[in-house]
Design a protein around this nucleic acid. Sequence first.
DNA 1: AAGTACAGCAACCGCTTATAA
DNA 2: GTTATAAGCGGTTGCTGTACT
Length: 235
Amino acid sequence: MGRQPCCEKSGLNRGPWTIEEDHKLMTFILSNGIQCWRTVPKLAGLHRCGKSCRLRWINYLRPDLKRGALTEAEEEMIIQLHSRLGNRWSKIAAHFPGRTDNEIKNHWNTRIKKKLQVLSSNHTSHTPLQQYEDCEVKKEGGTMKPESATEQGEIKLELQGTLVFRDPKIPQFDGRFNYGLHEGSNMGPVEIQKADHTTTLFSEEISKPLPEDFLQQWIDSPLPWDFFSDLKEDT
DNA sequence: AAGTACAGCAACCGCTTATAA
DNA sequence: GTTATAAGCGGTTGCTGTACT
């Protein structure tokens, strides 16, 4: 029943790959292709687990890999995608031909995360909502629901709704936005997007503590539009 | 020059999902 | 429908090189 086990766990090489191992794996895959990772190390003459071979190929040996540091534009796109997809690195990596999920994950954890932390700590002096002060904003329905709560009292909410913007600088578009926040925190960026047009709004004005009654009031109310009091609302 | 701290990244671990038997 | 396994995925670890003291 079922399939054969992937590989023997004992007697296999571990740790960094040698040039010779790389060469064996690359030569084998280029001439035979990949049918089954389990059989690859055996057929290629490697003392490695199939899983390890797969990882080495995907993250390092694939000929279509793009080498070199990620560009500013790529970084910006990662931030945008991460705000929508969260830590789904493979989904994010799918938008970057030649880049691997591991590469993007590492880049996020070692660089972007820190960059954003610095940005958010400077956030109180940042008022990009002014950028949209000429906007007319129209609400078109929306829902809000508690997503999760922890024992530490951290509450995450999901808000979904539709905004229609009218702005001379931005063609009219509707958007879907989601965010999470917890008691006493600043709310993160609110992303407004449609098709290939994505932008992000920030505001320190929308930082609110969330005592239970206030939270309930929020949950009960159809739309928490107080968050957007800075914007002219066209109802 | 030596020791320590830190950053970056490759590789591993363990869980989840898809699929063959 | 159930079970076992391969493949995929995200979190984490640990090695290596570099900067700092």
